[in-house]
């Protein structure tokens, strides 16, 4: 199959801590941190949105790919916080990275798996030789209603991947599968500012059923075992859920922790599992195998088996790492956080 020839991450500089939110919600911060498995979350700058985050990640992905950007034939931006209801984020990102006009573009939406699905789409286009390279991006500035439990985790960030032929790849996609059903666990109706969710229903019949279902399917179809993988990344709505799935599959700390970026930045929705993948690629070595499973409410999971090639070593140093962005931070007060989210003006 096709593979990843360049990747880039981006996380805004700003953070709000669980303590800061808990103080306003009059909740127990330690219980929240323990329950959700995260300590703080990323917040967009006042002049940042899904389009600027996607552009930043795409530029880093291009720097790593080292290709003629005019050879890009497709660009897809997956998000549940596209700035426009009607006007494509993907075309604005394409213009900002300067790929010319000979490309197809569309915005995708499938809750938190809108980005991973575009990797499958681009892999299909590359393998069928319809395009030479395709750009797949997952980025979000997630919304959470003040006072809602989501406020502790809904974060901002994204990652971009340039998909090309397996000969040029720094990580070849060995196999990808999906596991999908109509499950009403989380949604945002048209014209509504904030999403709604079905509370505890978002766990067992939603996240766990689909992440476990897709991962099992991938292991069966590739005839591999979890211990064959150097790194394993599961979608991270919080720090607790991916750890629970890891326990079921007997994933070790060494396999899981390098991609578990949620603890310090929160749930970046469409960027979540993709940022985990980028973090793992930052430290991967030739021959390493990576398993990544995304999750999008509604519901579905895309699972990928990847093999890292010798091209990874040169690519890693050509742009900032995910950890560089995690380490760069400035904390906001709760009031400033609301201003950054345009909740208050």
């Amino acid at each position: 199959m096709a593979g990843i020839i360049g990747y880039g991450a981006y996380i805004p500089k700003y953070r709000v801590s669980a303590e800061e939110i808990a103080a306003v919600q009059e909740a127990n911060a330690n219980a929240i941190k323990r329950g959700l498995g995260l300590t703080e979350k990323s917040v967009p700058g006042k002049d940042e949105d899904t389009i600027t985050i996607a552009t930043h990640a795409a530029r880093d992905a291009l720097a790593r790919a080292g290709i003629n950007k005019k050879d890009i034939g497709a660009i897809y931006v997956g998000s549940e916080s596209h700035p426009y209801a009607v006007k494509p984020s993907s075309a604005i990102v394409a213009e900002a990275i300067g790929i010319g006009n000979d490309y197809t573009a569309v915005d995708t939406e499938f809750a938190c798996k809108a980005g991973s699905a575009t990797i499958q789409i681009n892999a299909g286009l590359v393998d069928s030789k319809m395009v030479k390279y395709g750009v797949s991006i997952g980025a979000d500035t997630s919304q959470a209603e003040p006072g809602n439990a989501l406020e502790y985790s809904a974060a901002a960030g994204g990652a971009a991947f340039i998909i090309g032929s397996n000969k040029e790849s720094l990580a070849i996609i060995d196999k990808t599968v999906s596991f999908t059903s109509d499950t009403p666990d989380f949604w945002r109706r048209s014209m509504q500012a904030y999403p709604s969710h079905a509370g505890r229903f978002t766990g067992e019949p939603a996240y766990f059923k689909h992440v476990i279902g897709a991962t099992k399917l991938l292991l069966e179809k590739t005839k591999t075992k979890i211990e064959d993988y150097t790194y394993v990344v599961f979608h991270m709505p919080n720090g607790k859920f991916p750890r629970a799935v890891a326990k079921i599959f007997k994933v070790t700390e060494e396999q899981l922790v390098p991609g578990l970026v949620v603890e310090k930045i929160g749930n970046t929705y469409s960027g979540s599992s993709l940022l985990g993948l980028a973090a793992v690629l930052d430290i991967a070595k030739p021959g390493d195998k990576i398993l990544m499973t995304s999750y999008g409410s509604g519901s579905g999971s895309d699972s990928f088996a990847l093999t890292v090639t010798e091209k990874i070593t040169e690519a890693q140093g050509k742009a900032r790492t995910t950890q560089d962005y995690i380490d760069r931070k400035e904390y906001l007060s709760y009031a400033k956080y609301l201003k950054h989210m345009e909740t208050i003006h």
């Binding site: 002049d47 940042e48 949105d49 600027t52 552009t55 930043h56 006007k87 560089d324 760069r328």
Partner: peptide, 25 residues
């Protein structure tokens, strides 16, 4: 250089983007 929002033309108008700069980190 970074790509950022310049401004929004009111509640219904276009969102304008362009280049700003951040201190190198």
């Amino acid at each position: 250089a970074v790509f950022r929002k310049f401004y929004k033309s009111g509640e219904k108008g276009a969102i304008h983007y362009g280049t700003k700069f951040v201190p190198k980190f």
